[in-house]
Design a protein around this nucleic acid. Structure first.
Lengths: 237, 237
DNA sequence: GGCCACCGTCACATAATTGTAATAAAACCG
DNA sequence: CGGTTTTATTACAATTATGTGACGGTGGCC
């Protein structure tokens, strides 16, 4: 199971130490910065699984960073935990409404922060915490690397597995070939976009197959000129 | 576009009032109970979109309710916000680790509670709080690339989809063919203005069609010598 | 080395969508 | 009403996107 990657945006050096230490001890990788602009760049390029964001940081306020992260398509769904000394209600609400997923006020205990990070991730990226993913009759045990459909075991190659996992983490949502290459293959790999088609084909074949010669309804929806999505109710022709 | 349904499990009658009032004012439907066993039944049967769960309630402790909700497949993914007087760290962590999505300690402000409820729902049910466009019975989920009219799925080609999205982003407003070409096709594409008519026709056909041979009222208004607009109430004769 | 599973790419088949032109129908105007 | 302008509708051929099978390559493993 992969170690989730956390981007920590905080300018108090001693806090950075404290938080990093606790996160790493609990199985997270931590990237650090104390600069708002740099945080945006890191969020784009390193694709962390979650951001811990202090309100008071250099160059851009935390809340502004939050807003920009939400606005950029690539990071619009990145989980954000705001971290701040501001305990006033209005600020907390403002933080949450800007798109933060949780909000922790200083002083806080490192253990509670870790617990909240876990709670957010468990929700948004169940695969990271070794949970099971279920959708449309498909069940994936991410830690055992096993997949079933309607109880029947499905066998997948490594790439098909990661592809399906990505779909299961965001059921119903359409992903372009480019997005899929980023998320499933990795950002620095160069492969043809059409390669995605081939793996979609392989995934479909595996997931829709039965032991006899019949086929189950297709769970992957092709969205012409947009990409593919995992879908419970495929469009009838 | 349904009002999200909240199950409120709380035994302090005045708090129930306070919370219900605020939630309903903010567009939620609220189901209430003060009993742990009953909460489990209601969660199963009424299928709420989120549960607000007090720690101290009759019959079963809140945390036990939480555990059982998580264990039952039907409610394993139901978002839970814990609500409690216990501010001790160990308790908060226990709450989060049991599977709560958020944890609010008394005393709290109703507005903050509502903001947290929204933050959790925004994550889990994007359809309920954003990312999709609604107008005149038409609902478009932009991230899933799905369109429904009065709940019935509408299937559109790529261009019709973009065209409808543009109309939904500016409901009621009239656009000339030139403006539509700019916005939907792109500034640097050369196509005949009349092409817009054809796509309007295709969009109308798809959106107004029913499964039988009847037709729904037209949602697109032709404005002679000006262009087209999406309109809720076409002029009756 | 030989076997096997998997991968990425290509070439071709198939299917969906597109823009245009031709024609019919409406709306407008004196 | 006749003439004119604007929009609706239909059919079609070109274009584009996706589906699919095959192939060569790579690396693990015995």
């Amino acid at each position: 199971m992969m170690r989730p990657k956390i981007l920590l945006v905080e300018d108090d050096a001693s806090l950075v130490e404290l938080i990093s230490y606790n996160l790493e001890k609990e199985g997270f990788d931590v990237i650090r910065t104390d600069d708002g602009e740099e945080a945006l760049v890191l969020a784009q390029e390193d694709k962390p699984d979650l951001v811990i964001l202090d309100w008071m940081i250099a160059n851009l306020s935390g809340i502004e960073v939050c807003r920009r992260l939400r606005r950029a398509p690539a990071t619009a769904n990145l989980p954000i935990v705001m971290l701040t000394a501001r305990a006033e209600e209005a600020d907390r609400i403002r933080g949450l409404e800007t798109g933060a997923d949780d909000y922790v006020t200083k002083p806080f205990s490192p253990r509670e922060l870790v617990a909240r990070v876990r709670a957010v991730l468990r929700r948004l990226r169940p695969a990271l915490s070794g949970g099971n993913l279920d959708y449309a009759g498909i069940s994936m045990d991410t830690s055992a690397h096993k997949v079933t459909r309607d109880g029947v075991t499905v066998s997948l190659g490594p790439t098909e597995f990661r592809l399906l996992r990505h779909f299961l983490e965001h059921p119903g949502r359409v992903f372009s070939r480019e997005q899929l290459l980023d998320a499933v293959w990795g950002r620095d790999v160069y492969v043809e976009q059409r390669t995605v088609d081939v793996h979609i084909r392989r995934l479909r074949k595996a997931v829709n197959a039965t032991d006899n010669d019949k086929e189950l309804p297709d769970v992957i929806r092709t969205v012409r000129s947009a990409g593919y999505a995992l879908d419970a109710a495929p469009v009838p022709v």
